[in-house]
């Protein structure tokens, strides 16, 4: 067990690591704006496409026009806060930068987590002005009712961030075992993004795909917290969802740490 002094030391270390990475993330703000611009395209075009598909109907599988627009707007904010990428991990393993981290009295996983978390916060701040423009574009479809920003939403958001990080970590571990990981990542971005509800709410997908997506971890990264926030899920579904989300997070975390330990034994620390 940790005593008070060692807990204080650990907290001080985390504060320092987060602080440094926050500054480092700020240094990449110009790059961030470019990435945000690429992400904005689907945030604007996908709802426009669906709106055209409504025709005379007032609802599509339970979604009103306003509800659908709200879904995509919430997706764009939540994805800024939760997404994690495996590229940095894979690069560190491939070019041997990992070696430096391995000599530090702080875990590499902690460094990467801090790097992603601070980047997510910086990116979200940078996103605010763009978000305001998008709100203006969809001003005729904004309805402000029904949002659920209670503890259930915040818990699902934190778990989504952790789960997304664990998935990225697992994918990063592939770099210990494979020469080329780019293909796998591209595949994951396509399939994972789709099953997470990034392209469309799972409700609009065929029944079989939706059922499959709801057992897999991906939907708990994006679709679940978004739907909790929009108040589209009954309370028992929210509770069940939180339990499944937590279970996936723990499972992925355990698998990731096992692969990390095994991967280190294969690590060759090239390039230094």
């Amino acid at each position: 067990m940790m005593n008070a002094a060692s807990l204080r030391t650990a907290l001080r270390k985390w504060r320092a690591v987060l602080g440094l990475h926050f500054q480092d993330s700020l240094a990449y703000r110009a790059q961030g704006v470019v990435w945000i611009l690429t992400d904005i395209i689907p945030t604007v075009t996908l709802p426009l496409m669906w709106l055209a598909a409504y025709g005379d109907r007032s609802h599509l599988r339970g979604f009103s026009r306003e509800g659908l627009v709200a879904y995509y707007l919430a997706v764009s904010v939540v994805s800024n806060l939760v997404f994690a990428h495996p590229w940095e991990i894979a690069r560190d393993i491939k070019d041997g930068r990992l070696s430096i981290y391995l000599t530090r009295p702080f875990t590499y996983c902690g460094f990467i987590f801090a790097s992603n978390l601070t980047w997510r916060l910086v990116r979200t701040m940078l996103y605010v002005p763009f978000f305001l423009v998008i709100l203006a574009i969809f001003r005729h479809y904004l309805s402000w009712g029904g949002f659920q920003a209670g503890w259930e939403f915040w818990a699902s958001l934190v778990l989504a961030h952790l789960l997304s990080f664990q998935i990225a970590w697992l994918l990063g571990m592939a770099a210990f075992y494979l020469v080329e990981v780019g293909g796998i990542y591209e595949f994951w971005y396509m399939i994972g993004g789709f099953l997470a509800g990034q392209m469309a709410p799972l409700e609009l997908l065929p029944e079989a795909v939706r059922s499959a997506a709801q057992v897999m971890p991906f939907s708990y990264v994006l679709w679940f917290p978004v739907q909790v926030f929009l108040g589209n899920l009954p309370e028992d579904a929210v509770m069940r969802g939180l339990a499944v989300q937590a279970a996936w997070t723990v499972l992925m975390g355990v698998a990731g740490q096992a692969l990390w330990r095994a991967g280190l034994r294969r690590y060759t620390a090239v390039g230094i």
Partner: peptide, 17 residues
């Protein structure tokens, strides 16, 4: 850290070590 002044890395090491 490449994009930060050395002092920032130093301050981090002060805590880590």
């Amino acid at each position: 850290w490449w994009d930060l002044p050395p002092e920032e890395s130093f301050l981090l090491f002060r805590e880590l070590y």
